[in-house]
Design a protein around this nucleic acid. Structure first.
Lengths: 226, 226
DNA sequence: TGCATTTGTGTTGATTTTGTGAAAAAAAGG
DNA sequence: CCTTTTTTTCACAAAATCAACACAAATGCA
């Protein structure tokens, strides 16, 4: 299957890198633009872009302008990134045909979730709403977790963390990766906070806590083949 | 079972998006048109459209014209969307065979309710007019609610909210989702108003109030398996 | 073994989110 | 109009979560 192309336009290199890496890992192909003009250039030179992620605030041509220009010729889905502070101009956005807003800071998990939701709607594949592995069952829709058939209560972060682990069964995850995916990208705190969450998660899922393995000097891994 | 096709014609992208998303979630298939001509094109190119939702005010060919053209060849149900300001021309509408009017702004719940009511009348599937779960009984037709056999009084919004919860048993609902479904789509107020309504609802349904669970950092969920 | 580094864990204060009562605003009914 | 009801906003209280810290335990390495 062909990888879908996503154009990411943001003037902050750091954000582009984070988003790009995560999207690539999620199986998309990524084009990057550092400002609005670059975005338009890329848009015109690639005929098969599946979705655009635009920062509102960009040099040369801001997100709104890019959106407007693109909409003049195409119905490709557009996601707008807005700073939390700047009031999202819902009306303006909807008039311009913005499909979705995401406020900075966001977590990459959320961004990718929205992206795949939109692409799925436009006509693609269904992502997994229920995860399960050896006695652990996670129902994302209901936001419920069962261990050996018994429900357990998890906090928001714990839930997100568990999902992330289960989505990446058998893959060694560095603390940095975990932070970048489950936490908002503007979180510059101590990476050890992950340890605390892992601790709570392990204790809450009881005996199955062993599935979360420590990789010394590296991070964690959720047990599992593939 | 085949999903019923609904054609939605409105020049505002935002409204199309909201309506489309909600209808898709309700199990319908949706075709979209941004103006009257597009609507006619789609109508002619799809033989099995079950119902049309037409905005009165549309570029190129307005809702009345589309209605007239469609009626010349088909008896498919038609719902007209009118702006609150513009007087609905009831006579004109009935002459043209409009099945139902809905004034903007409307809530998606209402729109879908009317749609399924019409489709049922025409001879389709029977949707739930009476909801009940563990001692809570809701009669939508009569707009009455019973808790353990005793009737309780709910305001309009409270009633709608309760129905929405009961229709989505076991599904984690974000405040955004709730707003988009139960409130009119032009409501840009504080999402905390939901909290207030939840509070009143909980207190009015007494001990059963526990069924409405808070999902911290996320929203609410009505208890229930499935 | 001993040392340096990394991870596990209990605790705690700060932060965020939700609950709640009351006031303000808006709608509905006379 | 004025009254009554409903809906929304606001402010503060209560609750839950989170991040940081400190120290213990475990691990890797020489």
């Amino acid at each position: 299957m062909e990888a879908l192309k996503i154009l990411v336009a943001d003037d902050e290199f750091r954000i582009r890198k984070l988003v790009r890496d995560y999207l690539v890992k999620s199986g998309y192909e990524v084009l990057e633009a550092a400002d609005g003009e670059e975005a338009m250039d890329l848009f015109y030179s690639h005929k098969d872009i599946a979705l655009l992620v635009l920062d509102v605030m960009m040099p040369k041509l801001d997100g709104w302008k890019v959106c407007e220009e693109v909409r003049a010729v195409s119905k490709v889905p557009i996601i707008m990134l807005t700073a939390r502070s700047e009031e999202r101009d819902e009306l303006k956005g909807f008039a311009l045909g913005v499909d979705e807003y995401i406020s900075k800071p966001f977590s990459l998990k959320v961004l990718v979730a929205r992206i795949s939701a939109i692409l799925r709607r436009v006509g693609g594949t269904e992502p997994e709403e229920k995860l399960s592995y050896r006695g652990i069952e996670v129902d994302r829709t209901a936001h419920r977790v069962f261990v050996d058939g018994e429900e357990i209560e998890l906090s928001y972060k714990e839930f997100e963390l568990l999902c992330f682990f289960m989505e990446n069964k058998g893959i060694a995850l560095s603390r940095e990766k975990i932070l970048n995916s489950v936490w908002n990208f503007d979180y510059y705190g101590n990476a050890r906070t992950i340890d605390t969450h892992v601790k709570k998660l392990r204790s809450k899922i009881g005996p199955k806590g062993d599935y979360i393995r420590t990789i010394w000097g590296m991070g964690y891994k959720f047990e599992g083949e593939e």
